[in-house]
Design a protein around this nucleic acid. Structure first.
Lengths: 223, 223
DNA sequence: ACCTGAACACCGTTCAAGT
DNA sequence: ACCTGAACACCGTTCAAGT
């Protein structure tokens, strides 16, 4: 990692981009045109070079995605000096994380498919663990609960993102299908109303409550 | 090349496959070579035709994915005549769902990116809702809880699938990085052991307990 | 009318050749 | 020695032309 940075710095080329400047260029593309525009070739065009040159910065496209995600995570508000109770701070952090993931088209789907690395992911982890421990949870509950919590918020964001892309925010197509199947699927039919009710924020708020309650009240985790 | 073209040309127009037979061919490809091999072009080759012909069966590649996922879901064991308590039956169903998603490379990642349609997804929904209602949960808890539960299991499966592809089942790379950051990220450092402990099944079992406990004990959902 | 080969507009990655 | 244009091996989708 430091090795690559040194190599880049000593490069005599006409455009000695730092890894940060490289990432910034990729992030600009994301902001202006969404994730689907962030390809190595498009980025190469942006940087006025051929696609082969980008392999000086990243080993493959997944590494570009990881860089981009961590760059985006710098915008998450961790409420570092919050005087809230830990649980309230945690809810604020999760909401900010969700908001950041939904800020650009395709970012949430990317987050659901990348193992988070880097400074900002680590800072987010630290803040969330701090809250969970501050809520009085055991080391084990905090650790495993962190995993579940982030997985959950990321998955919810990815589903929002997906529906947004398909212009089907309430799952209308699905709903129509379900309505026709009263005899064979009585439970689905009976709960059709509830299944598709609620705003995004109401559901997210409840989802957070479910996961946090579960982390606190479920049996002690044991490996 | 010209030889094959002449052979095709001299044949009468092929009778179209049923959608089922078409899906079965795609599923065979998935079984033999994993999701990454399931492309419209590969499938066209398998069916001895050009890629354009597949648009008689599906509107785009996402529809192919949806077809494939539902086909895979037919293998989920719903324990229809189970005499277990609803909660136990539900755990069995979720385990079977997880196992099916992990049976083929890339399927779980696909499931995390597709809105589930079709017969088998609906049958799974019906069974899960039946269990949740059988556990005495309100209509609203059952409906919103169903969403959360499936989202959760799917997300867990997708992460397993991803790690498996990258040959990093316990997140070794991540771990090494984290260990070096004791001063700036004390919580992460202190909980490093717990964060990476536990087998996949132990963590899945706890995750199920967390979500089910949360669904039961969290505040009543309201929209 | 229907099917499909060929074309179009892209991808990520590799490598030989030019500076 | 290093950078990168060009090539390679693919994608999904469209459309004109042939039977």
């Amino acid at each position: 990692m430091a090795e690559r940075a040194r190599r880049l710095r000593s490069r005599p080329a006409k455009e000695p981009l730092s890894l940060e400047a490289f990432t910034a260029a990729a992030f600009g593309l994301l902001e202006r045109e969404g994730m689907e525009a962030v390809t190595l070739r498009r980025l190469a065009g942006e940087l006025q070079t051929g696609p082969a040159s980008l392999y000086a910065y990243v080993h493959d496209v997944q590494e570009l995605h990881a860089l981009l995600l961590d760059r985006a995570l710098s915008a998450v508000d961790l409420h570092p000096a919050s005087t809230d109770r830990p649980r309230d701070r945690l809810e604020r952090i999760c909401s900010s994380y969700l908001e950041v993931l939904l800020r650009h088209d395709g970012l949430a789907r990317l987050a659901a498919g990348v193992l988070p690395f880097g400074e900002n992911a680590l800072a987010l982890t630290e803040a969330v663990l701090e809250c969970l421990r501050g809520m009085g949870l055991s080391r084990m509950r905090a650790a495993w609960g962190f995993d579940l919590l982030m997985l959950h918020v990321t998955a919810i964001a990815a589903e929002h993102d997906r529906r947004r892309e398909q212009n089907d925010p309430i799952g209308r197509a699905h709903r129509g299908y379900v309505e026709a199947e009263a005899e064979r699927f009585p439970q689905v039919h009976a709960l059709n109303e509830e299944l598709f009710s609620g705003t995004g924020t109401a559901r997210f708020s409840w989802a957070l409550d479910v996961v946090l309650t579960g982390i606190s009240e479920a049996r002690e985790p044991n490996n």
